[in-house]
Structure formats: structure tokens, C-alpha cells
């Protein structure tokens, strides 16, 4: 028994649509898998907010203000993706204080990102921050450079929820990019310093997190001497 022509035509069109649908799905899957490593994240998750509310972790706000040759302004977080115009390493008890590359940087808003503000959600204790130019080499060489970069000590006191860690100011060397703009290749370590934009930080943090109480300023300090680690002792039964 033959099907009417219209039915055949409809089935054909439906088949083509299904094929195109599968194709679209495949393209979206591949695209998502490519960009998944470079998507920037926004505000703290519900789980993080709960941890901050319970004083288990703190939201640590930091500003980076850098210039390159001849005092040209250099936007630190221009792309809000991995390997942005500068990158960070963060060390803690787990790493023996050695900074490990931070894959994702987080920002309170696009406007604050443009002004050089970024934030971390960290547990209480001592952390070590390293700032480094963007990665333009293989990971192994880059990690070695990060390990030898100057470390900034960040002490997060117990029960602190909102912390301002200071404004890190520095000058760097840069080279021009093929399609315009410049990229930093090195940081003048001797000229790095931490300044205080406390009022600005307080405004940003209290506007974004009104329920987390007062903002504490604990400015970064250049790490010198032995790396100090703090962590509770394991229980004897462990």
C-alpha cells in the first residue's frame, strides 16, 4: 500500500529537520566543550555564600592597577577569560605555600572588572598570592616561573566575611600584538607596591553583599623568610 505523496513529502522534510537538529546539537556540544575552559565566572554560588555566611570562608576583594612602558595604562582583566592580561597563582597549606595557577578569575561586575577589581572566595588562614604576566609558553615552563615569582601573603582572620586585600600597583614590560594592543611580558618586581583603596572596596562589597557585615582591610604583605602555614592538627585517630 503506497502512502500519499503529501505524507511522503512531510516525512522527508521531517527527516531533514531531524538531521539538521542533530547537527545543530553536535555543533553546540563541540562549541560548549571548547569554551568551557575559558568561561569566566561571576558572583559567588549559593554554596559559597552559605560558607561565607557561616564564617567558614571569606570573600576577598583585590584591585590590580598596572601600567606598561611610558605609563601607558594596561587593563589587567580585559578579556575575563583564562590567561587574561595578567594571571594569578594562589598557594595555601595544601600546596606548602607554593602558588598554583588560578584557572578562573572572578569579577563582581563588568564595570568593576574594567577598573581592575577581582575577588576570591577563600577559607580562613594564610594564603600566598603570586602575580605573573599572561601565559605565552608551555604550562611546565609557566608553572616554574610562577613558582619563582614574588609572593604576597594574605592573612584571612577567623570570622572575617568580607576582606579587602589592597590594590596591587606595578609596572611591566610589554610587546605589541599583531592586531593591535599590547601584552605584558614581564613585571618590574622592584616597583610592585600595595596601596589602599579602602573606601571604594567597602562600597563595592557592601553594595554586592549587604548581609555579610563589615568589610575588613587586610592588606597584602610581601612574603619574606620562611613560609608560614596554619592548619589544625589531624586528630590522633586519623
Amino acid at each position: 500500500m503506497k502512502q500519499p505523496l503529501r505524507t511522503q513529502s512531510r516525512e522527508r522534510v521531517a527527516g531533514q529537520r531531524r538531521g539538521l537538529g542533530i547537527l545543530r546539537l553536535l555543533i553546540v556540544c563541540v562549541f560548549v566543550s571548547y569554551i568551557i575552559g575559558c568561561a569566566s565566572t561571576g558572583l559567588p554560588t549559593l554554596k559559597e555564600r552559605t560558607a561565607v555566611g557561616a564564617s567558614e570562608k571569606a570573600i576577598v576583594l583585590l584591585r590590580v592597577d598596572c601600567v606598561v612602558e611610558n605609563q601607558q595604562p594596561y587593563e589587567a582583566f580585559k578579556h575575563s577569560v583564562m590567561d587574561d592580561n595578567i594571571s594569578f597563582g594562589l598557594g595555601s597549606f595544601e600546596t606548602g605555600g607554593e602558588p598554583k595557577r588560578l584557572a578562573l578569575l572572578r569579577f563582581l561586575s563588568p564595570e568593576s572588572r574594567k577598573e581592575g577589581w577581582t575577588y576570591f572566595v577563600l577559607p580562613h588562614g594564610i594564603h600566598y598570592l603570586a602575580v605573573y604576566p599572561p601565559r605565552r609558553t608551555d604550562v611546565l615552563t609557566y608553572e616554574r616561573g610562577l613558582k619563582n615569582a614574588p609572593r604576597w601573603r594574605l592573612d584571612i582572620p577567623l570570622n572575617a566575611r568580607l576582606i579587602y586585600a589592597g590594590t596591587l600597583r606595578f609596572t611591566g614590560e610589554s610587546i605589541p600584538l599583531l592586531f593591535g594592543g599590547r601584552i605584558m611580558t614581564s613585571i618590574r618586581i622592584d616597583e610592585m607596591r600595595v596601596t589602599n583603596d579602602e573606601e571604594w572596596a567597602r562600597k563595592l562589597l557592601t553594595e554586592e553583599f549587604p548581609g555579610f557585615g563589615e568589610v575588613q582591610s587586610v592588606l597584602l604583605r610581601l612574603q619574606q623568610g620562611p613560609t608560614i602555614l596554619r592548619s589544625p592538627l589531624p586528630s590522633p585517630t586519623e
Binding site: F93, G96, G97, P226, T227, I228, L229, R230, L233
Partner: peptide, 16 residues
């Protein structure tokens, strides 16, 4: 010499 790492709670020195 000075250790590389001090774990305060454990009174521990580490040379790496």
C-alpha cells in the same frame, strides 16, 4: 639555616 616552611600548630620545620 632558616626553614623553608613552618607549620605553626605542629611545631614543625620543613626544609625542601
Amino acid at each position: 639555616g632558616s626553614p623553608d616552611v613552618i607549620w605553626e600548630e605542629a611545631h614543625l620545620f620543613a626544609y625542601n
